[in-house]
């Protein structure tokens, strides 16, 4: 039965994880601005607080005080709804992501995930693919040409790369035999020859690369940030958005980045596993965060390095390269698995 104990445990977990997620998003934005600054031989924001550490707070306050503009020609209901549709699923994905094994607090065994469902991977895919509705509706409801083009481009891009993304995961599922993310991670907990961790990245480097590329495209980041393409579309689907509604799209984008990084970690980099994690389970979340940080750094590094694709190049790359390679990878992994079993 649902007891108050369980309910309190859930609520505390949700509160803590939600707070950590929001803080992480705020500081990833700061990290991105500082790192981009360093990459471009400047300092980045460093005036608000020590090392600019209070900058996210200042940004948040600014978003609250800015005037909220709803264009006269816009479809008001959808215009207000769109950023929420983008944000809510992006924040919800954290519910099934495990970030550690069980720990004991106050004599109570607590599993380090909000919930574990046996189709966790599908839940994440379902929620992340809902985000496309927010972007498409934002583009359409703004009634601005830039927004509409950005929204259309984005929806076509998201659905194209989603195929490669889900196909690249099939190889992992063949080995884990489960869609439960906890099971997927636990299956990576041992070593070859005593020191090489059994992470899926070593058995499926092709799948990992496809996943990484498709995940970057799914989160609309450089070099796949065509929906925003400042030089041609101003800001794409959020051209007309300002104030808190703009902030919602922003938070959604960074939440999606965190989700994509966590998924890459869970599926291919052994999740929370690392040295001594069996003896000290509290190390789990630390390893997990470090691995996520690596992917977030990669995102920012790519942004500081690569130019943007042209739209026809993007579609050709997705449909004529990534999808056939992902399909071939599925066949290859299935064949290899048969040899091993």
């Amino acid at each position: 039965m649902l007891t108050t104990d369980i309910l309190i445990e859930w609520l505390v977990k949700i509160g803590v994880v939600f707070f950590i997620l929001m803080t992480a998003i705020a500081y990833v934005v700061l990290l991105e601005r500082r790192l981009l600054g360093f990459i471009q031989m400047r300092l980045g924001p460093n005036r608000v607080g020590p090392f600019g550490l209070l900058q996210p707070l200042a940004d948040g306050l600014k978003f609250l005080f800015k005037e909220d503009i709803v264009p006269l020609e816009a479809d008001k209901a959808l215009y207000v709804l769109a950023p929420m549709i983008a944000l809510v699923p992006a924040l919800m994905t954290i519910s099934v992501i495990p970030f550690g094994d069980k720990i004991v607090i106050l004599g109570r065994e607590i599993a380090l995930h909000i919930t574990s469902v046996n189709v966790g991977l599908l839940v994440v895919f379902a929620l992340t693919s809902l985000g496309v509705y927010g972007i498409a509706l934002a583009g359409w409801s703004s009634n601005s040409k830039y927004s509409l083009m950005g929204g259309l481009r984005s929806s076509a891009q998201l659905i194209s790369y989603e195929l490669a993304l889900s196909l690249s995961v099939v190889g992992v599922i063949i080995f884990s035999g489960s869609l439960d993310l906890v099971e997927v991670v636990k299956q990576q907990n041992s070593f070859w020859l005593g020191f090489i961790p059994k992470w899926n990245i070593f058995t499926q480097p092709i799948g990992f690369l496809i996943f990484l590329i498709a995940a970057i495209a799914e989160t609309n980041r450089v070099p796949f940030d065509l929906p925003e393409a400042e030089t041609e579309l101003v800001a794409g689907f959020h051209t007309e958005y300002s104030s808190m509604k703009f902030a919602m799209f922003f938070i959604a984008e960074y939440a999606n980045m965190v989700t994509a990084s966590s998924m890459a970690t869970l599926l291919f980099l052994g999740g929370w596993y690392g040295p001594f994690v069996d003896k000290f389970p509290l190390l789990g979340p630390i390893y997990f965060s470090l691995k996520i940080l690596f992917f977030l750094f990669l995102y920012i590094w790519l942004r500081g390095t690569l130019p943007r694709f042209r739209y026809d190049q993007l579609m050709r790359f997705g449909w004529k390269f990534l999808i056939p390679v992902a399909l071939a990878n599925v066949v290859l992994v299935a064949g290899l698995a048969l040899l091993i079993y």
């Binding site: 859930w10 609520l11 949700i14 939600f18 944000l87 809510v88 099934v96 909000i114 919930t115």
Partner: peptide
């Protein structure tokens, strides 16, 4: 159920 709870929070 926690996913539903998180939906409310989100």
């Amino acid at each position: 159920l926690p996913i539903v709870l998180l939906l409310l929070v989100a």
